[in-house]
Each structure stands twice: as structure tokens, then as C-alpha cells.
């Protein structure tokens, strides 16, 4: 079982990296303080890595396409739009008074509601073309983005600066206040689809084969799309949009594990994403002194890999 062995190796590598990240540079005087900062950060990193890897794997299976990521649904733009709208309508003080957790729940709720509305609208039509859904999502994304920028132009510049940090979280400026809530929500979301996970292998055969083999296609797809919206909201709220990490890790997992079984693919993608983020954070914090945000590095590498993938594949 080559696949399993490779998963063990990946897990071991991740364990070492996490330990390195936690323990490197500790000394007897500051260890308590340093750990109290590093542990939540590590958990957040792993949570972000898992939700991105998980949602991207599922998304690629649903779309039967190796070169798409959930970011084309326009959900991250919607998140920014919701944040801007709150500030625009009620001011940043309201945002502060509401508290991060409430804001997070509100945003996730709105995003899920929006996706459901979008799916409902499109799945009602006869030709349930998932690519059509994506294109609509994408345009909506541009729309929300323009609208958010528009409101940001109108907001008092001082107020804008105050909220900018919250709106554009990054790995160096992680929104760890909502960590526990995000953890619980993602856990519940995954629990909610747990018994559908076995259908993923079948879904990768395409719609007709899936229906033939007794999968309630429309229902299962909608359920997974809701899961994807929740996971995307979680990672966007924690660290902001990282477009290409998902693309990168799912394809690496496929290359490395050479299997179609989601049991392994999902675990593999989660491990690779966690390794990439922990390693990236380690380098960014300890070597580069925070000089380049790792989301930019990841998007850069992910982007190059994507172009490589397009050129290499004989058919897409």
C-alpha cells in the first residue's frame, strides 16, 4: 500500500514542522508567553489548511474538473462586501460593539444563505449546468468587489483605516478571536456531511453515473456546496482570501497519492496544505521577519503550478 505509506510520511513531516514551529527559539523566560501566542496560531493554520484542502477537493469532484477552486464562486468577495456594508451602514464602532464572534456568525449565515439562493435559482432550471453556476458566481464576485470598493471610497478615510485590518486579515494578522467558534462551526459542518462522504468517489464518475448508482445527486451536491460555503467563509474570515492554495494542494495530493479514493485524497490534501502553511509561516516569521506575506507567496507558487498544469495536461 504505497498510498498509505505516503500518508504516514506526510503526517510525520507535518508533526515535525508543527513541533519546530512551536518550540523553536523558546527559552525559560518567555516560553509561557510564546506558547500562548503560538498555539492558537498553529491551530488556526491547521484549521485554515484543512478547510481549504477539504473544500477544494470536494469542489473539484463536484465540478469534475481539476483546475477550479471554490474561489470562483465569488464567496470571498461576498465576505468583504458584507464587512464593508456593515461599516458603511452602521459605522466601524457598530462593528466593534457587535463583537467578532457575532460578526462572524452573521457573515457565515449570509454567505450560506446567498449560496443557497444562488443554487436554488440555478438548480431549478432544467439544464443544471454547474459551470453556469460558476460563471454567475464569478460575475457576482466582481460585482460585490466593485460594490465594496465603491463603499470604501465613500467611507471616511479614518474609519476605513480602522476597519481595514479586520477586513483584510492575513497570516501575520490572524483573526484568532473567532478561532474557537470557527473550529466548532467547521466541525459541525463536516459532521453534517459525514455520511455523504462515501458518495464522493461515485460523484467523480459524473452526474449520470452517480444517479445510476443510486446517489441523490441534486440533494448531495447542494449539501456539499453548503459545506463548501461554510469552509470558505471560515478560512476567509481567519486569514483572508488565498485563491490558489486549494488548487495546488489537491493536485499535489493527486500526483503524490495516485488514487481516486477520496478517503486518501482528502487526508492527503489536508496534510499537504498544513505542511505548506506551517512551513511557509515558519519561514516567513523566523527567516524573513514577516517581510513577504505567505499568502502572496502561496498564490504565486499556486499560480505558476496552475499554468504548468494547463500546459502539461493533454486534455482538460
Amino acid at each position: 500500500m504505497k498510498t498509505k505509506q505516503r500518508i504516514y510520511i506526510l503526517s510525520a513531516a507535518l508533526l515535525i514542522l508543527v513541533l519546530l514551529y512551536l518550540l523553536l527559539g523558546l527559552n525559560p523566560f518567555i516560553w509561557r508567553y510564546a506558547l500562548s501566542l503560538r498555539i492558537p496560531k498553529t491551530i488556526a493554520l491547521l484549521l485554515v489548511a484543512s478547510s481549504i484542502a477539504f473544500s477544494s477537493t470536494v469542489f473539484q469532484t463536484l465540478t469534475n474538473n481539476r483546475i477550479l477552486t471554490p474561489s470562483v464562486l465569488g464567496l470571498d468577495s461576498l465576505y468583504l462586501f458584507i464587512q464593508s456594508l456593515i461599516v458603511f451602514l452602521f459605522g466601524s464602532s457598530t462593528l466593534a460593539r457587535l463583537g467578532e464572534n457575532f460578526n462572524f456568525i452573521l457573515s457565515v449565515g449570509l454567505m450560506v444563505a446567498f449560496s443557497l439562493l444562488l443554487f436554488q435559482l440555478l438548480f431549478k432550471r432544467e439544464e443544471r449546468n454547474i459551470f453556469f453556476l460558476l460563471l454567475v458566481g464569478l460575475v457576482m464576485g466582481t460585482f460585490f468587489q466593485s460594490l465594496s470598493t465603491f463603499m470604501q471610497v465613500l467611507i471616511d478615510p479614518n474609519e476605513f483605516l480602522v476597519i481595514q485590518n479586520r477586513m483584510f486579515a492575513s497570516f501575520n494578522n490572524m483573526n484568532t478571536e473567532i478561532l474557537w467558534l470557527a473550529l466548532i462551526i467547521s466541525f459541525l459542518a463536516v459532521l453534517f456531511t459525514l455520511k455523504d462522504l462515501k458518495n464522493l468517489d461515485i460523484l467523480s464518475l459524473g452526474r449520470e453515473n452517480a444517479i445510476n448508482l443510486g446517489v441523490d445527486y441534486d440533494f448531495v451536491v447542494k449539501k456539499f456546496l453548503v459545506l463548501i460555503s461554510i469552509l470558505v467563509s471560515v478560512s476567509t474570515a481567519l486569514v483572508g482570501p488565498i485563491t490558489f492554495l486549494g488548487l495546488l494542494v489537491v493536485n499535489l495530493a493527486r500526483e503524490l497519492l495516485r488514487t481516486f479514493r477520496h478517503k486518501y485524497l482528502i487526508v492527503g490534501a489536508i496534510l499537504i496544505a498544513s505542511i505548506a502553511l506551517t512551513f511557509g509561516q515558519l519561514i516567513a516569521e523566523r527567516l524573513l521577519n514577516f517581510s513577504t506575506p505567505i499568502s502572496i507567496i502561496i498564490n504565486f507558487i499556486g499560480g505558476l503550478y496552475f499554468i504548468f498544469l494547463l500546459l502539461k495536461e493533454s486534455k482538460i
Partner: peptide, 23 residues
């Protein structure tokens, strides 16, 4: 009929059988 019972009673094979996974 629920999807699973239906799939045990009747199967369909369409003409286009292009798969995206390598099996």
C-alpha cells in the same frame, strides 16, 4: 422510490462515458 432502492432495480448506461478519473 428512494435513490438507493431504485439503483438496485434499474440501471442506465448512457452513450457518452468519458471519465475524468483514471480507473
Amino acid at each position: 422510490i428512494d435513490c438507493n432502492s431504485f439503483a438496485r432495480k434499474l440501471s442506465i448506461l448512457r452513450q457518452s462515458n468519458h471519465l475524468n478519473v483514471r480507473l
